[in-house]
Amino acid sequence: MAKMQLAGVMLEVDEHGFMQETEKWNEDIARAYGAKEGINELTEDHWKAINYLRSYYLANGICPMIRRLIKETGFTLKKLYDLFPEGPANSACKWSGVPKATGCV
């Protein structure tokens, strides 16, 4: 298993840098992820998406459909890509500390 140091914590991650122990997540980790992708400050919009993703994941064991994310946050897909450079699945989910989506999605 790969390891990565983020916000002073040693994390178990997969080969794409997704956290494997979602309970170890904190806001500083999200900021550190953002910084790695060139987003040095997380805005309120970022947090709106991250908090929704994370709470949805914790309640349902899966990331929400993009449509839901768009509806809940009120952001367009383009806006989500502006906020999260690699898009909702590869950046937003990663920064929220949830595992990478698998299984035909």
Binding site: G61, I62, A101, G103, V105
Partner: peptide, 10 residues
């Protein structure tokens, strides 16, 4: 229920 992790209620 699914490799996506999708549960029945979800």
């Amino acid at each position: 229920g699914s490799p996506t992790g999708l549960r029945p209620n979800v």
